[in-house]
Design a protein around this nucleic acid. Structure first.
Lengths: 196, 196
DNA sequence: CAAATGACAGATATTGAAATCTGTCATTTG
DNA sequence: CAAATGACAGATTTCAATATCTGTCATTTG
């Protein structure tokens, strides 16, 4: 039952892959490295993931899912007013991204490369985030505090309008001290636009 | 007075540099190429631009200035209502970018590399665009159709909220057919938020 | 017999020597 | 004498040989 004799599972391979990516970076992380880290032959890794691309996509999905899960709690907190939930949800999303980018820039760069090469996985992640937003917008429209409309397309507009504060291609901007105020300005404008 | 005997000016060097960048791309365009295109020695180019980086920055500025100049006409058209001007200004900005990206993707990629390496020039360009927006917002607030506030910070919020539709890092999205509707959704929300 | 191995072919990455480029400046040109 | 040149040193890029990696599969292992 020691780690080295544990059976080889997809989960263990994903953990090892994350570690190898963290250590070597996205350009130098090889399947052979992952196998070496696990003490198995690289052929065994290919029993669980058909290609290196599939393995990297799975790691990317795992990483993105961690963020979605944390946000779902805020999105679905029926106790709080939709306007407050919306503001907090965007702040939480922004802070999560900014902190990751700031705390370990190399790791963030690694995941930026991974997201760039896995458009499908990122698309599903964005769809999930917009679905969470849609639930908040629906609640607001149902209770009459938001103007009526199509919740899904409003949710999408909200997500687009805040791209500057969550899309990794804007990460360089996130260290500017005024950025927090700018997010609040944008949210003020959007929430005014949303109000009934 | 034939082109080859004309005196060597900064302007002629910039034209030749654009042409070399168009032909060879940003990675392979050299100062020697530019000199060759002009039929002079590369030493002569260095009489007008201290470094290759300065030359590339000047080309970048020229390119960005062409966009600013086209938009200024819309921004300062006092005949039209601020809300209409604002909507048109953003549509014009979006269409200019999307058309450039679509018509000649290689050239667009070239200029994306140039803007990435010339943060200062891009910063000045963005400041100019936000200044144009500020003038529209001021007009709207002065006439009472926009809610009162600080025009400059509202203008900045508008620019941030539309990043998805003008920042080159989102260029891949601009070929999706729904993008035009998404821009309109965002502008609807923002204009509602702006209204008095 | 399911899981793991490792040799293999073709694709990709690394490396170091050679070629080219950047930026300077003493000299030439008109 | 202002403008242009071209040789030069050091930095960067190219290119081809070499090494490593990816993905497969016949064979081995527990």
């Amino acid at each position: 039952m020691s780690p080295t004799t544990e059976t080889l599972t997809a989960e263990r391979i994903l953990e090892a892959t994350e570690e190898v990516l963290r250590r070597h970076g996205p350009a130098k992380a090889t399947v052979v490295d992952v196998a070496r880290a696990l003490g198995v032959s690289h052929g065994s890794v290919y029993r669980h993931f058909r290609t290196k691309a599939e393995l990297r996509a799975a790691v990317t999905k795992r990483w993105l899912d961690r963020t979605s899960r944390a946000l779902a709690a805020t999105a679905d907190d029926g106790e709080r007013a939709p306007a407050l939930r919306l503001r907090d949800w965007f702040r939480q999303l922004f802070e999560a991204k900014r902190d990751k980018a700031g705390a370990d820039p190399e790791l963030f760069a690694t995941y930026s490369v991974l997201t760039d090469e896995n458009g499908e996985v990122v698309g599903a992640h964005i769809a999930e985030l917009v679905a969470q937003l849609t639930r908040i917008v629906e609640a607001g429209m149902a209770s009459g505090v938001f103007a009526p409309g199509d919740p899904a397309s409003v949710a999408r507009a909200l997500f687009r309008a805040t791209a500057h504060f969550h899309d990794p291609c804007h990460a360089r901007e996130w260290t500017r001290p005024e950025i927090r105020d700018e997010l609040d300005s944008v949210l003020d404008l959007l929430l005014r636009g949303l109000a009934a």
